[in-house]
Design a protein around this nucleic acid. Structure first.
Length: 464
RNA sequence: GGCCACGUGGCGGAGUGGUUACGCGCCGGUCUGCAAAACCGUUUACUCGGGUUCGAGUCCCGACGUGGCCUCCA
């Protein structure tokens, strides 16, 4: 079975052929660490984690390189640092903000069942030329100037968009059309309104690095051009991110990387995930429906968020709802019960086939339901495949006992008390005192306990 | 204003020319003292209007709706 991926650049789904099957290379734009990640940020992290896992399955774990950067230089970070640590020197305050936020990000995504990427470079480590000779931003900018694709003006270094014949190919924008309805203020020093900053000057109270163009800091896009080249080379296989990054971020990355390196392409497949809404509305702080990953994790296990995200295809918009979370939780309760701590040795073909069709995770979920039903009716081969598939995808990370305990603890229910009531009810039933046994049953139901009678006795669990 | 994505049954959500998606819910059955749980089964769909075709949810045109980008927001 062959992997097919949808490419934003060509707008088509086509067979994935890696440049080097022994080193499949993927770059995904990571977080800007100025504030805790929200559930919208979680989507690309989960989606591309699934792709990472699939590629490792197909090509071998040691044959995939996944790079996801951390952006730790950004004016929003500066603002946050000044706000939160007014007494500290700016550099120190910035470090506190970025370290704290990055640490929280790592905790959050680990809870979502995401593997760490192979490399997670920080932008600030790639501003100046490096001792190890890996690509850096200043050298890239110098190359762009040398090749006639960038110019210095008004204290800035700008990319000259007109120097690139096919600028705008990814987002389907043509420069002249952009100009027609442009609301972008034309800076006097720009040759063209679409030109964007590669390097800008820093004032004394802003973070800065000494460069050939004075003390300054990089523009937003150049960091990804540098870090992808540093770890993946000038041309690599897959570049991913959210839909909103297509323009201007990825468009400008392509322009910088291709023009600096003189290559016809930057990445062979551009993949973009759709946006997330909350209860049918745009997520925004003013509507009060803005949730960080951390906040949602307080109420739900990470795997519930993960499954909830994968129930929708990555390119479609997703509506994040409480009802959806409840359904996902219910499904996972059932899957943990059926998988019953099976180790799992062989991943199901149906699951790999679904994922191989441009990461069709809804189809994958359907395949898992099929395996689940087969396993529940006693097919041990499918139970093995069910568990192996779930583990491949980042589920079943805890024992089924731990999974159930968590729910019980969260509910604050005293297990010994329940066991006692169950024993009383069993005794009442044995003496055919059904009035009493039904009274206890109603009592338990009111407490949120689901009882399960079987030939072997009575078990119970906490209802959601 | 320009560009892009999406619009499927009570709900979520796959499916790109011709056969059941799948899950939840509802309803029926088995089981049960009666239930619950579990298992088995059933049910309803393709925003609207044109067009292409032997045949369209699936292709084309238009309308409407929702969301996004064009302002360093995943």
């Amino acid at each position: 079975m062959e992997l097919r991926l949808h490419d934003t650049l060509t707008k088509e789904k086509r067979a994935f052929v890696p440049l080097d099957p022994n080193n499949v290379r993927m770059y995904v734009c990571g977080p800007t660490v100025y504030d805790f990640a929200h559930i919208g940020n979680a989507r690309p992290v989960i989606v591309f984690d699934v792709l990472f896992r699939l590629l490792r399955h197909l090509h071998g774990e040691s044959h995939v390189t996944y790079v996801r950067n951390i952006t730790d230089v950004d004016d929003k970070i500066n603002d946050r640092a000044a706000r939160d640590f007014p007494g500290l020197p700016l550099n120190e305050a910035i470090r506190k903000v970025t370290e704290k936020t990055a640490a929280q990000f790592h905790t959050d995504v680990a809870a979502l069942g995401c593997l760490p990427p192979t490399f997670e470079p920080r932008a600030t480590d790639f501003v100046l030329p490096r001792p190890d000779g890996k690509a850096d931003m200043v050298t890239l900018i110098k190359q762009l100037i040398a090749r006639g694709h960038a110019y210095e003006a008004g204290g800035e270094v700008l990319f000259d968009t007109q120097s690139m014949a096919d600028y705008g190919a990814l987002s389907g924008r043509k420069l002249d059309e952009q100009l027609a309805g442009a609301r972008v203020a034309v800076d006097a020093h720009k040759k063209n309104p679409a030109d964007f900053v590669l390097w800008k000057q820093s004032s004394d109270d802003e973070p800065g690095w000494q460069s050939p163009w004075g003390r300054g800091r990089p523009g937003w896009h150049i960091e990804c051009s540098a870090m992808s080249a540093a770890y993946l080379g000038e041309v690599f296989d897959i570049h991913g991110g959210g839909l909103d990054l297509i323009f201007p971020h990825h468009e400008n990355e392509i322009a910088q990387s291709r023009c600096a390196h003189g290559t016809p392409t930057m990445a062979n497949y551009w993949m973009h995930n759709g946006f997330l809404q909350v209860e049918g509305e745009k997520m925004s702080k003013s509507l009060g429906n803005f949730f960080t990953i951390n906040e949602v994790l307080a109420d739900w296990p990470g795997e519930v968020l993960r499954l909830n995200m994968l129930k929708t295809h990555y390119r479609s918009p997703i509506d994040w709802t409480l009802k959806g979370l409840e359904e996902s939780a219910k499904t996972l309760d059932d899957w943990y019960w059926v998988a019953a701590d099976t180790k799992g040795t062989r991943v199901a073909d149906t699951v790999v086939e679904a994922l191989s069709d441009d990461l069709n995770t809804p189809q994958m979920v359907a395949a898992l339901h099929g395996l689940r039903n087969s396993a529940a009716s006693g097919n041990e081969r499918d139970r093995d495949a069910f568990a192996a598939s779930l583990r491949l995808l980042g589920f079943l990370s805890e024992s089924s006992a731990a999974w159930n305990d968590r729910k019980q603890k969260a509910s604050g229910i005293d297990a010994k008390q329940i066991d006692g009531l169950i024993a009383d009810r069993t005794a009442a039933r044995a003496r055919k005192d059904f009035g009493e046994s039904d009274r206890i049953r109603d009592l338990l139901a009111a407490m949120g306990i689901v009882i399960k009678d079987s030939k072997d006795g009575t078990t119970w669990e906490v209802a959601r």
